[in-house]
Design a protein around this nucleic acid. Sequence first.
RNA 1: CGAGUUUUCCGAAUGGCCGCGGGCAUGAGCCGAAAGGCUGUGCGUGAGGAAAGUCCGGGCUCCACAGGGCAAGGAUAACGGGUAACGCCCGCCGAUGGCGACAUCAGGACAAGUGCAACAGAGAUAUACCGCCGCGCUUUUGGCGCGGUAAGGGUGGAAAGGCGGUGUAAGAGACCGCCCGACGGCCUGGCGACAGGCCGCCGCUGUAAACUCUAUCCGGAGCAACACCGUGGAGGGGGAUCAGGCCGGCCCGGCUCCCCCGGGGAGGUGGCUGGAGCGCUGCGGCAACGCUGCGCCUAGAUAGAUGGCCAUUUUUAACAGAAUCCGGCUUACACGAAGACUCGUAUC
RNA 2: CGGGGUGUAGCGCAGUUGGUAGCGCGCUUGGUUCGGGACCAAGAGGCCGGGUGUUCAAGUCACCUCACUCCGA
Length: 111
Amino acid sequence: MRFTTSLKKNGDFRRVYRKGTSAVRPCLVVYARRTGREENRLGFTVTAKVGKAHVRNLVRRRLREIYRLHEKDFCPGYDLVVVARTRAAVAAYGRLESEFLSAGKELGAVR
RNA sequence: CGAGUUUUCCGAAUGGCCGCGGGCAUGAGCCGAAAGGCUGUGCGUGAGGAAAGUCCGGGCUCCACAGGGCAAGGAUAACGGGUAACGCCCGCCGAUGGCGACAUCAGGACAAGUGCAACAGAGAUAUACCGCCGCGCUUUUGGCGCGGUAAGGGUGGAAAGGCGGUGUAAGAGACCGCCCGACGGCCUGGCGACAGGCCGCCGCUGUAAACUCUAUCCGGAGCAACACCGUGGAGGGGGAUCAGGCCGGCCCGGCUCCCCCGGGGAGGUGGCUGGAGCGCUGCGGCAACGCUGCGCCUAGAUAGAUGGCCAUUUUUAACAGAAUCCGGCUUACACGAAGACUCGUAUC
RNA sequence: CGGGGUGUAGCGCAGUUGGUAGCGCGCUUGGUUCGGGACCAAGAGGCCGGGUGUUCAAGUCACCUCACUCCGA
């Protein structure tokens, strides 16, 4: 992921939640906030409610893979936070992919 | 062949494209004064049998005491061994269950003291309701009173050793024979728990996962421990004011300036993986395990690395993801593999 | 990493030394009223989160386990 770094600090997450816009899908919620940087910053939130440790790892890997394969479709200059909902634990890869992209399109982060 | 017991192992494989963490190398590119950093390339490596629950035991670090004892609190509980240690493991004893292979057991002490035992029942740790027997009174096929008795009745988880006899007014370990159990002594076997035998003396309810007693062990906290580096800012000390600036008419003084000290927030580095390590051979031991020799190096992240798309086998693979490290325990788990053994049936 | 708490009727909760599981609201039926509410009377509804054990007997005691929840670093 050449043009993307990860979102690390809790304060960054809170700023995106408070100041950003959101799009809700059955399996996930995407928050976005325009920053004007040259790169995107991406963070994932998968809480314990979703499942046990290996389930959460699987969900997070799939979401990261979706972003990696579609990175060229994303506009630069956004902070993005993807929150997995409970249903994401049993959802197939294709469903996560379509929901992620449609949510990104609604927020204007995807061309 | 059927039914079953038990131990151990495995924890999908191979290939293609894209992608991730760590390590090593780099006559490549960029940044930098340098150390080095970033990117790229190459090689090799990258989750488990439970990584889980955090139930025990240790290593390590800091704190306390630096000698010992007592008390409090907690843990453990037949015996012998293994181990760094353990509440773990092995062997063995006893009890219980099973035809058996075998499995399970918080398995010390209620015969030191205290407590509890509902309901039922006459009576619950000692008692006389019915019954039996004797004596007295009486209205005499009966009733009442006094006394003896624990054999029979019913209740209960439990009613005071069991069966048979002697005995007696009726009865009773009151006495006798056999059996059961407890305690004490002796003998035999065993390292020991214990087992077997003989003698003596007894017959005492259950419950310590009730208080308690006995024996043994335990200082506390935890890698977000702990150690180091640490821009700025607050603070303290010194210097220069014969350098400059501000407050000021000037001096003193204050700020600015320079140096040092300093606890240490954000952040970073170490701790961080070569270890009570793994595999194989040989020896000792019933075994757990120990010893010798040879070989091997096998994750170390820090928002936290294993995913996506296919192909083939055999279907769409179970439970499930390291975070300081080891030894155990417990719990979850798909398809399987191997060894040993028991019972039944049939045949030889 | 460490330490607590809770689970009982549809809902909210009681239930010490083990001894027949209760309260309030709700529900059903009947009464009262012209009718409803309130009130009165009667009633149904529980494998005490799950498993194993100790005991004559377990919601209660012990161990294992599941779920929810809180606190400290």
